[in-house]
């Protein structure tokens, strides 16, 4: 029994280290990338803000910047599961931030996020389209 208990890894440092390196290298690179991307010298994405920023927004800018997705998700669940869908909608966001391209996407791109909200919910990339929609709509 004891004969085969010897670990096959013994004395095979190279064999262990090399695959580990292969596995860990991309991870390390991405960490380095993330750290360097997050350095304060990097440019902040330019977001197109409404003329009176934060006037009548549901929360203050700081909260929205870091937690808007949590708020959206929670409100979404309550509205979808609880009913009253018509009361809360992305339309409200759109009334102040008409351009998805110049507001949402810039930031999402800067932090390389691809939320899939807009695949199904209407939020035009370009406000011109929104105007068209409003004119054509009800």
């Amino acid at each position: 029994m004891s004969g085969d208990r010897k670990s096959p890894l013994d004395g095979n440092l190279v064999k262990v280290v090399f695959p580990l390196l292969v596995i860990l290298a991309p991870l390390g690179l991405s960490v380095i990338g993330a750290v360097s991307a997050g350095d304060p010298g990097a440019e902040e994405p330019f977001l197109e803000l409404p003329p009176e920023p934060n006037e009548g927004c549901v929360r203050d800018a700081e909260f929205m910047r870091f937690h808007h997705w949590e708020l959206l998700r929670e409100v979404r669940d309550q509205v979808v599961r609880g009913g009253g869908r018509h009361e809360i909608s992305l339309d409200r966001c759109r009334s102040c931030h008409p351009s998805r391209e110049r507001f949402c996407s810039r930031c999402h791109e800067a932090v390389s996020l691809q939320p899939d909200c807009f695949g199904c919910h209407y939020y035009p990339a370009d406000p011109a389209a929104a105007v068209d929609h409003a004119r054509a709509g009800r």
């Binding site: 549901v58 009361e87 339309d91 409200r92």
Partner: peptide, 25 residues
């Protein structure tokens, strides 16, 4: 639009909008 605005104010006014939302819903 106005309807949504009211909803929005309602949200803005409450620190824990979600709990209250349940009632409103």
């Amino acid at each position: 639009r106005k309807f949504l605005k009211t909803g929005g104010r309602f949200l803005a006014a409450t620190p824990f909008a979600c709990d209250l939302l349940v009632a409103s819903v």
